[in-house]
Nucleic acid binder design. Structure first.
Length: 306
RNA sequence: GGGGAGAUAGCCAAGUGGCCAACGGCAACAGACUGUAAAUCUGUCCUCUUCGGAGUUCGAAGGUUCGAAUCCUUCUCUCCCCA
């Protein structure tokens, strides 16, 4: 018997992944596991452009609104939870869908993360304070403690430097000693479909969607989570700008304009990742599901697909 | 009609004789990415380039000067004030 198959639907924000994946899931009679680092949080469905309740009723979704912004959620947690869900879903149907725009999460699920110690808030806070007062201290420290990683990483990238030092503190070993980039064995095959749209059209969709999200009550949603503005889950395009609006540093119009710009920039980063980190098949989000199924059939010479 | 201010690269904007292809910022484009990833960071950004350079720019046209985005003249346009 052949291995189960995971169909991954990815693409930049606003490219139409959600609608596409729901169409495909209904055809294949399977569920959808979301690979989206913000849609997991139940407090921010509007701001993360999560599937609507109607959409959620059409197809069973996992990892959408399943966690709280105060929970710890990251690529490692995602890898573990998504694998567990997949395993149980494969008992019903050996084709399943993963849909999302968080490239790192998808990579973690498909290839696995190396066994590196999990993050520690205490150490991070401590290192963060040092960085804020003088980044050079930590840069030098990393160069001494892990010259190998210092060479390949960007020392002006605070998050990278802090993570490396964090791992060193936690383990007593260098960060580079953990980084094997070894692919973990997975008992499923996968194919990645990426939504392809002309850049101009994508940007127009993003602009329009930002307005719709505001109309749908995004500002109220943001007000509700405003007290937790420091949590990682809210270091997110849109919320930051709305918080600035609440602070009185931006007018509402300015905040919305900035949201559009920053969402476009985010989409661009996603495209860079997809283009260079993964091997994907580009498809137009309007494509007929029959054509998609044909692409997959051809790839895996599957006959049981109907 | 009279008086004043200003026109700089896609946008905002600094520069008031040589160190200016022109500070900064934004947008745009490209890239990196292993537990913060909707995060974080890097590069390009007048044209051409064998990346050493070469060529054309600072509203327009003239002029002064060894040398002008910067000084002078005229013209065009924009804004403000008084009529």
């Amino acid at each position: 018997m052949r291995k189960p198959l995971v169909i991954v639907v990815t693409g930049p924000t606003g490219s139409g992944k959600t609608a596409f994946s729901i169409r495909l899931a209904k055809k294949l009679n399977c569920s959808i596991i979301s690979a989206d680092s913000r849609q997991v949080f139940k407090e921010i469905p509007i701001g993360s452009a999560a599937p609507t309740n109607e959409e959620l009723n059409e197809v069973k979704h996992y990892l959408v609104g399943s966690h709280s912004i105060n929970d710890k959620f990251n690529a490692g947690v995602f890898e573990k939870e998504a694998l567990k869900i997949l395993e149980s879903l494969f008992k019903e149907n050996n084709i399943q869908l993963v849909c999302g725009g968080t490239g790192l999460y998808i990579k973690a699920l498909l290839e696995g993360l190396d066994n590196i110690p999990d993050s520690s808030d205490e150490i991070r806070t401590e290192l963060d304070e040092i960085w804020e007062s003088d980044p050079e201290v930590l840069k030098k420290q990393l160069q001494e403690l892990d010259p190998e990683y210092s060479k390949i990483t960007d020392l002006s990238n605070k998050q990278r430097v802090i993570r490396a030092l964090e791992v060193i503190q936690l383990s007593g070993k260098t960060y580079s000693s953990f980084r094997k980039s070894s692919q973990k064995a997975r008992d499923f095959d996968y194919v990645i479909l990426a939504m392809e749209l002309p850049r101009e059209e994508l940007y127009q969709r993003i602009n329009r969607r930002s307005e719709l999200m505001i109309e749908a009550g995004w500002i109220k949603e943001a007000r509700n989570v405003f007290p937790f503005r420091e949590v990682n889950a809210l270091q997110t395009v849109g919320f930051r700008e709305l918080f600035e609006f609440f602070d009185g540093r931006l007018s509402q119009e300015e905040a919305i304009e900035k949201i559009k710009i920053n969402t476009r920039r985010y989409a661009k980063r996603q495209l860079t990742w997809i283009r260079n980190q993964q091997e994907v098949s580009w498809v137009n989000p309007e494509i007929e599901t029959e054509s998609v199924i044909k692409i997959i059939k051809d790839r895996f010479s599957l006959d049981e697909l109907s």
